[in-house]
Amino acid sequence: MSSGNTLSENAEEYMEVLYKLSLKERPVKTTKISTMLNVSPASVTQMIKKLQKEGYVDYSPYKGVTLTEEGYKIASKITRKHRLLERFLHDVLKIKKDKVHDQACEMEHVLSDDAERALCQLLENPDECPDDEELIPVCDFQFETCEECRKRRQEEVKEVGKRDKNLVSITDMKKNEKGKVSFIRGDYKVIRRLMDMGITMGAHIAVLEVAPFKGPIQLLVRGSNLALGRDIAKNVFVEIIREDTVPSKGALSYG
């Protein structure tokens, strides 16, 4: 399959829905999966148990479903390809917004990783899909910026290599979560703007407050409080730092 696994197209659709729902709540209720996919609760349970057996989700009856690290990697990859295809269909082929979702669903399963990268470059690294303006997940290639990807345009994905850590956008982080900046999407102007604010590759950040109604996100960066607008925060991707993976003393230096 296009995402480098042996999942059926039907299973990939489940993974994509899980990715979308898990950004808002974890664990995800199976009833919500049933509603989104318009399938019976029994069918959802059957598929979730299959995905759990393959190591892509953790499932507990009456509690819900959570993507594993491997599951998140695959689900975000599928979602990325889908949303890039939506942009291509809308921006390049001029297909109406209400038509792009179904068409992208048919195409995402056969889009290779090399084609995904080329499509992203063609579209100049878009950050949102057109139909509902949802964030396009970051790629899993071993780059720190889009500029680096462009400079190595001629190299195939197998030469570039894959990132071994899952990354999330700052806009998808929760209050009190901490992370390390690992990828910045955009051109040199975006990178320069972030550098001026102290947000550089490898910098440690902590989310202090998430304003409602798409307001700014309050961060702790290098010992200083910073209000970052969502227009730029959505293009900064971090590796989440779990409390059980850092020393209790001096866990985050911010410096």
Rank of each mutant, 00 (worst) to 15 (best):
D244T: 09
T35I: 08
R185M: 11
G198S: 01
Y56V: 05
D114N: 12
E86K: 07
V100M: 08
E147H: 11
L226Y: 05
H204W: 07
D127R: 04
M201L: 15
V160M: 06
G255T: 14
I205M: 06
S253P: 04
Q121S: 13
L84A: 01
K99F: 12
V100P: 01
A211N: 11
L51G: 01
E128P: 04
M107C: 08
D58P: 00
D131N: 09
N166I: 01
S34F: 06
V65H: 08
T35K: 14
Q103L: 15
E243C: 04
K99I: 00
L85M: 07
E159R: 10
K24L: 08
P130K: 00
R26D: 08
K174N: 13
L111A: 04
M1K: 02
C149S: 12
S112Y: 06
S34M: 10
E243P: 05
L7D: 01
L111D: 03
Q218M: 12
L67Q: 01
K174I: 05
G250S: 07
N10P: 01
N225I: 01
R117C: 02
D114M: 03
C120T: 06
P212E: 05
I78W: 00
R230A: 02
R83Y: 11
I241C: 12
K158L: 10
K96H: 08
P212I: 00
P130Q: 04
K29H: 08
K94N: 14
V92D: 07
V100Q: 10
T68F: 07
Q142C: 15
R193T: 03
G55W: 02
V160L: 12
N176D: 13
T45K: 07
L122H: 00
E13R: 09
A118C: 09
V160G: 09
L7S: 03
Y59T: 00
Y62V: 01
R192G: 00
T79W: 00
K234W: 00
E148H: 13
T68R: 05
V17F: 04
Q154T: 13
E13T: 04
K178L: 03
E128N: 03
Q218I: 11
D132K: 10
V168I: 14
T66W: 05
L37S: 09
E9K: 11
M201R: 13
K53A: 13
R193G: 03
T45V: 07
T31F: 04
G161Q: 10
V92P: 03
Y188H: 10
K189F: 03
L228A: 00
S3Y: 06
M1R: 08
E133Q: 08
I95P: 02
I78A: 00
K97D: 14
I199G: 02
K49R: 13
R192N: 10
D244Y: 13
V221C: 12
K180N: 11
N225L: 04
E156S: 08
Q121L: 09
F183C: 02
G255Y: 15
A118T: 05
K180T: 14
K189Y: 03
N176E: 14
Q142V: 15
I78F: 00
L93N: 05
K20W: 03
L89V: 06
D140N: 13
G179T: 08
D132I: 05
